[in-house]
Design a protein around this nucleic acid. Structure first.
Lengths: 259, 259
DNA sequence: GCGTGTATGTTTGTCGACAATATGACATAC
DNA sequence: GTATGTCATATTGTCGACAAACATACACGC
């Protein structure tokens, strides 16, 4: 009985991956939402967006449905599509999902005991510690989310990675939706250090606990619970992008982006 | 300052939820894949499917992109859409994601200590124990997946529930993709009983461990590891649906399905 | 005989256009 | 002055059609 699942010797050729037009558009939309180019709650008019992207409405609408499935866009029948808003009362739901994904990713990472994978997380952590030395809220916020994504990515699970890439954007959306504006706390490093230490020591339960605590604390801070209880946290504020309509780059489905 | 987030007294009116046409089509496609009406790996020809559904190609393609995002359909640029195949080597990835979602759902469920939520899980469990008395593999398989979904749903997290609804269909796809045909093991009850017992006793760690063990064992069985090691498990086989092209029901976007 | 090149048929990817619907402004009645 | 009804505008939802790309079958050359 011939089995084709185990590639012995020559790995033959893996299927070439050519990104389709909808792939490109979907990525462009996600980036626009993540960067704040498409403001939260704003309706995206299809003719305008499609012309900016240099495509027709059909591929745009198809790509948009992918983001609807992710929860990044909300579709109301007669009203079209809007950028999703993550209101304060939905923050616990979001961060609970992050806890589920990130804690288990940490467990997998420790179980695999892969030095290369851990090195990538360490690199992201170093990049974060470097970013907090500055004062730009966006740079810090990006580095923070990059670290958390790197952690999940290092686990090597395709589905968890896919979930996390969406959760990252949703977290950013929550920051944009916040009525206190886009704010990141100043001392992000300590709690991250606890996570890194647990990861390096190989203590899965400690890592999971550190992650859960870190994210629970973040939820409390963003919902304003800490402020209500009189607890002050040093923060850095920063507007996403003052005025200026974000110009989405044109999609070029002829050339190969891997040049 | 008026706050509209906390509904005190009259809950006013919640936004009416009218399912769009793409919603209906997407659900129809998921059901068709779950039930085996659309066989694994089969390319879905758009003109044919769209005519069966009584709609045009545009809304069908938009709905299909949602399933692509879920991973239920794979899109290759020049070749169109195919029903995804979950080959044996991808089973660990799938079940590891299930472990992440289900174990954390159990932790949430125990933390909330909601009797009503636990009752629904118990009901699904009872339904499963009833199903295994019969010999129909599909009935048992449905009850099994229903139980796991009920467990996650009981946690009350919208994102985890959304993840799980996709994972359920992916698990079914894996069963269909198996070269040993659609097979379920005969004695599903014992390991499920361990999960239920832990849930009722309120022991989160025990529940998580039971779920992880149960799913890890399921992975080993489906990858054929047990058979290779000479371990026999009593199973029940059943074909998804002999021949006969599945006829998708026509979409009616005029009437209200909530009648 | 095996491999390569060519031609045909089918399916996809994209586009422009039409009809239905929702939004906002305006006028009117109470 | 407030509320209701009506109209105009803009945007969406859907459709049919065209062009490009792929898969299959066949013929040709080595």
């Amino acid at each position: 009985m011939p089995h084709n699942s185990a590639p012995a010797g020559a790995p033959a050729f893996l299927r070439v991956h050519r990104p389709s037009t909808v792939d490109l558009i979907a990525t462009e939309l996600r980036n626009a939402i993540y960067s704040g180019g498409l403001p939260v709650g704003s309706p995206l008019r299809e003719v305008e967006i499609s012309r900016q992207l240099g495509v027709s409405r059909s591929p745009l609408r198809e790509a948009a449905q992918r983001l609807v499935q992710e929860g990044l866009l909300t579709a109301i029948p007669g009203q079209g599509l809007r950028v999703a808003t993550v209101s304060e009362d939905r923050l616990p739901d979001l961060f609970e999902a992050r806890i589920a994904v990130e804690t288990h990713a940490a467990r997998i990472l420790i179980r695999h005991n892969d030095a290369g994978a851990l090195a990538k997380v360490t690199a992201a952590f170093d990049h974060l510690t470097e970013a907090v030395k500055g004062t730009d809220a966006r740079t810090i916020g990006d580095a923070d989310l990059d670290f958390h994504f790197a952690l999940v990515e290092a686990a090597g699970n395709t589905r968890l990675t896919r979930y996390m890439s969406t959760l990252v954007v949703e977290t950013r959306l929550a920051s944009f939706s916040s009525k206190q504006g886009y704010v990141v706390r100043r001392d992000v490093t300590p709690s991250h250090q606890a996570i890194m230490a647990a990861l390096k020591s190989g203590d899965a339960e400690a890592a999971a606990a550190a992650i859960a605590e870190h994210l629970t604390e973040a939820t409390a801070r963003m919902t304003g619970e800490l402020a209500e209880r009189g607890i002050e946290v040093e923060t850095v504020a920063g507007a996403p992008e003052p005025g200026a309509v974000y110009e989405l780059g044109p999609i070029d489905h002829t050339s190969n982006p891997a040049d």
